[in-house]
Nucleic acid binder design. Structure first.
Lengths: 393, 393
DNA sequence: CGTTTCCATGGAAACGATTCCATGGAGGAT
DNA sequence: ATCCTCCATGGAATCGTTTCCATGGAAACG
């Protein structure tokens, strides 16, 4: 496989595919094959070809193309032209192999299908792109084993750095990464005992904002739909809830606490459990948006109306939360900003600059789901007014 | 940088990071730096080290580790042991460089934040993982330029294949990919004139299911919230709508058609436009889930009730669509299956096996948003019954 | 017992880039 | 004019792996 002339010519396609999604009948079963004899990409133009065409050495070609050391205007032009004509595309693998820099970073979230993480991913990805890094986005699927599988893959792919929303305790590979001093940043979640910069939300503040808001509406029995204790945000919000309940002098009935797994179904079951308590809550705080959606459905199924019979506040805002009926009050931080910041931190670490952890403040966005004042409870508070219909900030 | 003994020993961390997300005040400003003098991963164990430790040549070590040709039981054991002890992790880049196979595939969707694509991504990713391929997931952001940027990146990263939900017409890089015969699969969308296997939904059938359902409820004026015409699914659903309207003898008033961009906000404005028509529709069909959510909000803002005053059917099911108020009727295909199938196809193409395009059938899931019979119109149809409250399939 | 076959192995080439090193020439200073 | 400096360049080493080729020895076969 030398620099044969065939590299310059593109052979006409020899076989053709089938069935360009004809709007016809359902399942297609006939098998006109789509063939590719030579599986990988053929027709690769290497820097050697470019150099030959430009009439310079590969060294010079490389210098021009990676724009490092000084080159003459003449050869610069020659090489550029040759590269353009041949449609040269540098091989990132070869480049990375030699220069110990892949310009690829990895982002491992626990579930892309969770809009919160999708936003994080989006933010991080855009930030990476702006610095011309490629992002390998992967999905731990809320599963420690899969998390480890991907970390292993990132390690063998020799990415320049990793952003992770970690599951559980530090797995073996996570330790390896830290010890190998591969640039690593935690986003949204952290793991105890890891010496790694992180971007997180101020969970304590967020819980406090939510409870202060509900307390000011007269609620004293507030149910908490928490996240898994294996995740740092789950723990943090749970602990913050306890402290904040105490601070505001609310009922600290253990029956008012239920745990979910950050997915919508678990929010439903948790809500059911809370509502079945001997003295049910008059307001709910969900530690995550998807669980809030689940709770919303369950509450409605029980014939209660959120925003009238029961107040609901959720963590994490989502684009369409304002479109729900009723629009849901949230304590939120911009997930996109979380992702962007994490990527910024990672790139700084990669470039050897100092990076410090960031804690983003949370913000309360009042919508109609928490418009109801405490009414069903036993302490008859102020007369029930329609409540100031809050703008949908 | 030779095979020095330090490779075996992990130097103690020399500097420490800061601030493990103390729940303290919001913005952290003090700057105890987190330093990484040696940016890339240090401490890399190569196959040479493994070979040396096992007392064999690198050739033998490679043969054992990649398990290709025959090796003696003795050396196999030696090499395995040495690799394990040293914590050897093969360098995927070097491996790919030599063997022209990276075991990485790329998936380019138009917007991860759209739950539909998040599901596709999830399905594809899991399928890839099962065949031990890594997935580079990227986000075209509904933007042709960014799509091209990522395709360029994939090309230089020398991925083994690409799955894409393409934007617009075939961009330059997309053509290059086809001509280079790099394995390529379209998912959900296609591009005219490309000779590439695809996995799509049977849009014509889907539209027809929806309209048949609405027509059977007595609706004759059905508003269509379409997608962008620059996207194949947008065009396909639009055309199918026109045909299906004709087939069922419904009103084909051009005022009943509005176009959005597959994001929730555009669904709201489209709904507003439709409802402002001289003779407004009694039912809406949205070409995408997010636009349906937007429409839902707008309709409610106008004081109408979906499922009572106005029927709504949407394309693409989402986990929490059943949790909305009212639960939304959809014509759906499993997005996860779409992703899985696309990945299966891609892997087949990569391995040189024949692959044929797949058209997945769509299914109607009746929920309450379409429970209302036509009532506001002028032709007094059958007496208004409560309508068979359909199960939430 | 001699010859052929086959298998495991070591050494080296190759993959496609970057980077080091030596060199020749141009230009500036003396 | 001579020397020194510096810049552009070609050639070669290198990154970590796979794969080709040659070889030595054991097994099989006559």
């Amino acid at each position: 496989m030398e620099s044969f002339p065939w590299k310059r010519f593109r052979p006409a396609r020899s076989v053709r595919s089938v069935q360009q999604n004809g709007p016809g009948a359902g399942a297609a079963a006939d098998a006109q094959p789509f063939r590719t004899e030579r599986p990988a990409m053929e027709n690769t133009v290497t820097i050697k070809d470019v150099a030959a065409r430009a009439g310079v050495s590969v060294g010079t070609a490389s210098r021009v193309l990676s724009g490092s050391t000084s080159t003459s205007a003449a050869s610069r032009e020659q090489v550029r032209a040759a590269a353009a004509e041949l449609g040269y595309r540098p091989d990132a693998r070869a480049r990375a192999l030699r220069s110990a820099r892949s310009h690829a970073v990895a982002l491992l979230v626990s579930d892309v299908r969770n809009p919160f993480f999708a936003d994080i991913a989006h933010g991080a990805e855009q930030a990476a792109l702006a610095s011309s890094y490629v992002t390998l986005l992967a999905n731990a699927n809320e599963d420690t084993v899969q998390q480890d599988t991907y970390l292993e893959a990132f390690l063998t792919q020799r990415v320049d750095g990793i952003i992770i929303a970690p599951q559980g305790e530090g797995s073996g590979n996570l330790r390896d990464i830290e010890q190998a001093r591969l640039p690593l940043v935690f986003v949204d979640r952290t793991v105890e005992g890891f010496d790694v910069p992180s971007v997180t939300a101020d969970n304590a503040q967020g819980v406090d904002l939510a409870l202060a808001h509900l307390a000011s509406q007269g609620h004293t029995r507030i149910g908490f739909i928490g996240g898994p204790m294996a995740v740092s945000t789950g723990r943090a919000r749970h602990d913050a809830f306890l402290r904040s309940v105490a601070r505001h002098g609310l009922d600290d009935d253990p029956e008012l606490i239920a745990a979910g797994d950050f997915r919508s179904a678990s929010g439903g079951t948790a809500a059911a459990r809370l509502l079945a308590a001997r003295r049910p809550p008059t307001a709910l705080l969900a530690a995550d948006s998807l669980m809030a959606v689940g709770a919303l459905g369950e509450v409605r199924r029980q014939g209660l109306r959120i925003g009238r019979d029961l107040a609901l506040v959720a963590f994490d805002d989502i684009e369409w939360f304002g479109e729900l009926d009723p629009p849901i009050t949230v304590v939120a931080h911009s997930a996109r900003e979380l992702g962007e910041t994490a990527m910024r931190l990672l790139l700084e670490v990669i470039e050897g600059r100092p990076a410090e952890s960031v804690v983003l403040p949370m913000e309360l966005v009042v919508r109609q789901s928490s418009a109801c004042r405490q009414a069903t409870g036993e302490q008859p508070s102020v007369l029930l007014t329609p409540g100031p219909r809050p703008g949908t900030a």
